[in-house]
Amino acid sequence: MAIEVRVPTILRSYTGGAKVVEGAGDTLGGLLTDLDAKYSGLRGRLVTPEGGLHRFVNIYVNDEDVRFLGSLDAKLSDGDAVTILPAVAGGALGFAAAAALFGR
């Protein structure tokens, strides 16, 4: 079962520079585990030590934000396309306050 995954520039150091890679899995969590076997360290940039998705990474299955599909439990089917984008965020707010507010 092949899932196409689009990798953002900042994470291509894990994929040998590849912009699009293929993985397998019935769920997003399964896919990330499968990818991490080939691209060691990639999963750790997307999933917190507690096992949730990082607040400031956006992952989409086809046209949907996975936050609305069950996050790591989001179901995948053959031919789905997964897109990873680092959130574009920032601002004058102090980092400690932003971290507290947004749970990073």
């Binding site: 046209d63 934000d65 936050r67 574009v88 601002g91 707010l93 932003a98 507010l101």
Partner: peptide, 17 residues
């Protein structure tokens, strides 16, 4: 916010695509 910004996740996907 007056002190924080974040792209809307769906607009972000659409524009990047």
């Amino acid at each position: 916010s007056m002190t924080f910004y974040e792209f809307d996740s769906m607009e972000h996907l659409r524009v990047w695509r």
